Amino acid sequence: MRERQAFQDARRAREFEAFVAGAAGRLLHAATLLTAELPDDNPRARALLTDALAHTYATWDRLRGEDPYDRARQQVAVRFARGAWRRHRGHGGVLERLNPQERLILVLRMYEGVAEEQTAALLALPTERVQVICARAMARVLHPPRGPAPPRALSGTAPS
């Protein structure tokens, strides 16, 4: 009996290690986008990923055909959403101009390719609200606010 349990535990560990080897990089990138940290300095993203992977490992035997990547991605998103509204301001990342909800929806929709309906269900929002937030976030990323205009020479004066 102990040998069988040890064999099952070893098999579970190998399966999970193979999953992490294939998925951790992409999940870390998604978490880094969410936290709006720099790729080389992303402690909050690493903590999100670690917590999500720990939860995925703890429930590994109960996945029953469910995609472990979807489960881990869902955990990253849920864990970010639970604490992000209060404390996740951008720190130099590419999406730092966005608020946490905009980042979450944009990353799920555009980077991860999660359908609007799934994103809405995950975040307990109406699909239409997800559409509006995603469109606003895309506009803010694609058309950032301009800085102040350069000073113009007054007419009738020669430039120096």
Rank of each mutant, 00 (worst) to 15 (best):
R4M: 15
D9R: 15
R11E: 14
R14Y: 05
R14W: 08
E15A: 15
F16C: 06
A18C: 04
V20Y: 09
A24C: 05
L28M: 06
L28Q: 08
L28Y: 03
A30K: 02
A31Y: 12
E37P: 07
P39Y: 15
D40F: 06
D40S: 08
D40A: 13
D41F: 02
A45P: 06
R46I: 03
R46T: 11
H55D: 12
T56I: 07
A58W: 03
A58F: 01
W60E: 11
D61V: 10
D61W: 09
R62N: 04
E66D: 11
D67R: 10
D67Q: 12
R73M: 11
Q74R: 07
R79T: 04
A81K: 11
G83E: 03
A84P: 00
A84N: 05
A84C: 08
R86I: 03
H91M: 13
G93K: 00
L95E: 00
E96N: 01
R97H: 01
P100V: 02
P100C: 11
R103M: 07
I105F: 01
E112L: 14
E116N: 08
E117F: 13
T119P: 03
P126K: 05
P126N: 10
V130T: 09
I133P: 01
C134W: 08
A135M: 05
M138P: 04
M138D: 14
M138H: 14
M138G: 12
R140G: 00
L142E: 14
P144R: 01
P144N: 09
G147T: 03
P150Y: 07
P151T: 15
R152M: 13
L154N: 00
G156H: 02
T157Y: 12
P159A: 14
